[in-house]
């Protein structure tokens, strides 16, 4: 009989306790972010979409070699001797004309191994994370702006396809 009433009181106290916890949480500020209108600020150096600053790219292809998934495709040709010399922003002479610089973001594994060997620090990972597309091909980013001058058939550089 005594345990019956003790259990009853214990039950009542625990119910009131849990109600107290719920009451406290009722007034704690919500952790929800109203996503499309309010966005989380990405931390510095977060590894999201790749970006290549083409003006600084010397077309060395070290990024493509470093990539474990072969998602970077680079094709270059030698700039002619009579063309004016151009330099990357850190002073490196750009000797190659990069006419294909494609990154397939569907293959990218966001390891950022490509950004470390880049001698001119032109290939970087940005904080952009909203780049869904209706077409798979829209995930292949074409960074190259130049057209090839020599009319030879483009030679595949990607070791996977070669």
């Amino acid at each position: 009989m005594l345990t019956y009433f003790r259990n009853l009181g214990l039950g009542l106290i625990t119910v009131l306790n849990s109600m107290g916890v719920a009451w406290r949480h009722l007034f704690t500020p919500s952790v929800t972010l109203q996503y499309p209108t309010v966005k989380w600020t990405m931390p510095e150096r977060s590894r999201m979409r790749l970006f290549n600053k083409m003006e600084d790219c010397i077309g060395c292809g070290q990024c493509a070699r470093a990539c474990p998934t072969n998602c970077i495709t680079i094709q270059t040709e030698k700039r002619a001797k009579d063309e004016p010399e151009i330099f990357a922003s850190d002073g490196t002479v750009i000797k190659l004309r990069t006419y294909v610089f494609d990154i397939d973001m569907t293959l990218c594994c966001y390891c950022a191994l490509c950004t470390f060997p880049c001698p001119t620090h032109c290939l970087t990972m940005t904080g952009a994370y909203e780049y869904s597309a209706y077409d798979k091909d829209d995930h292949i980013y074409h960074f190259a702006k130049d057209k090839p001058l020599t009319a030879k058939t483009p030679k595949e550089q990607s070791p996977e396809k070669a």
């Binding site: 719920a22 949480h25 007034f27 919500s30 109203q34």
Partner: peptide, 13 residues
Amino acid sequence: KVSAHIQDRLGPM
């Protein structure tokens, strides 16, 4: 709304 706020959410907004 009540369930959401007790669970530190916002509920329908």
